[in-house]
């Protein structure tokens, strides 16, 4: 039983990070209808920027949590600027282009950002100093650290704040209007370009937080870390119903738990034929199954046949 609880905790920590990154994908998709393939690289830049800032701040002798917070506060504006630049360089000029053209520029941007990061931060893996207490607490036989609790709580708070922003503020209303129809929104006096730029900036800020969380939780950062994470987060966004903010959260948490349970129990389920090497197969299989029965994801609205 304690093993099962431990697997659920593992899944929730992983899922919180997926969910934060997935939000970036889903917001951009909701508004522009395109996959921002470079989003994973923003997460990577957030992690590495925070790490550099922390490296400078540690000798100052401040307490650990303050240093991490300072690193985060430096990483957020940097990522916002990167997100803004991505939109300007790779997406805005292609607003009216065929649907797949921005996909290619996104892939191009992803390669460019990765190579620039490699030039800036080098090829080696970087380690995140142990600034936050990592000693495990015992919960019904399972272990959880302070850091992991902070990650889950922060992710939950950020998602709640985002939901509030989208449903309760003027800006959120403008975002929803733009997602519905950019041309009509423009007629209603919405500055569509600004709203789209803001969406990118907001998603990038969340990516920065996710990047710092990943780096702190796994104590590791590397210029190639963004791609796989981005892919998983994108999968999570689709699982929940892409374009739907609540769906991204649900999808992220669910994917984390599915992966965790998959690795833990797939061997027992298949009588030892399949092992934890089929963890990703299991995750994708669940995704395909969900999409076969709910073609727009778990929380996605049913789109009319005429898209």
């Amino acid at each position: 039983m304690d093993i099962f609880i431990q697997q659920i905790i593992n899944g929730l920590v992983l899922g919180s990070i997926y969910a934060l990154v997935a939000l970036g994908y889903t917001m951009v998709y909701g508004i522009l209808g395109l996959i921002n393939f470079a989003h994973g690289e923003v997460v990577m830049i957030g992690a590495l920027t925070a790490l550099t800032a922390i490296g400078v701040l540690v000798p100052a002798g401040l307490p650990g949590p303050v240093v991490v917070l300072a690193g985060l506060l430096i990483a957020i504006p940097v990522c916002m600027a990167v997100g803004f630049a991505i939109e300007r360089v790779a997406y805005r000029p292609l607003r009216n282009a065929p649907r797949l053209a921005p996909l290619i520029t996104a892939i191009g941007m992803s390669i460019v950002l990765q190579q620039l990061a490699m030039i800036a931060w080098g090829r080696n893996y970087h380690t995140f100093p142990a600034l936050l207490p990592a000693l495990p607490h015992r919960v019904m036989g399972a272990a959880i650290t302070d850091l992991q609790i902070i990650i889950v709580v922060t992710a939950a708070l950020l998602m709640a704040a985002l939901l509030w922003l989208i449903t309760r503020t003027r800006l959120g209303r403008a975002m929803r209007a733009t997602a519905e129809s950019p041309s009509v929104a423009r007629l209603m006096g919405v500055d569509v370009d600004r709203v789209i730029a803001f969406t990118f900036v907001l998603g990038s800020a969340l990516a920065a937080v996710a990047g710092v969380m990943v780096a702190a939780n796994y104590s590791i950062a590397h210029y190639a870390m963004g791609f796989m994470l981005g892919l998983k987060a994108f999968t999570a966004a689709v699982l929940g119903g892409i374009g739907n903010v609540g769906g991204a959260m649900l999808g992220g948490l669910l994917l984390g738990v599915i992966e965790s349970l998959g690795a833990g129990y797939i061997g027992d389920l298949t009588g030892g034929f399949l092992g934890s090497h089929y963890q990703d197969v299991f995750a994708f299989f669940v995704l395909i199954l969900v999409l076969v029965f709910r073609p727009s994801g778990l929380m996605g609205e049913k789109v009319a046949e005429r898209a």
Partner: peptide, 9 residues
């Protein structure tokens, strides 16, 4: 980067 679930196993 995440090995929690296999280590738990």
């Amino acid at each position: 980067t995440d090995f929690a679930s296999i280590l738990t196993k």
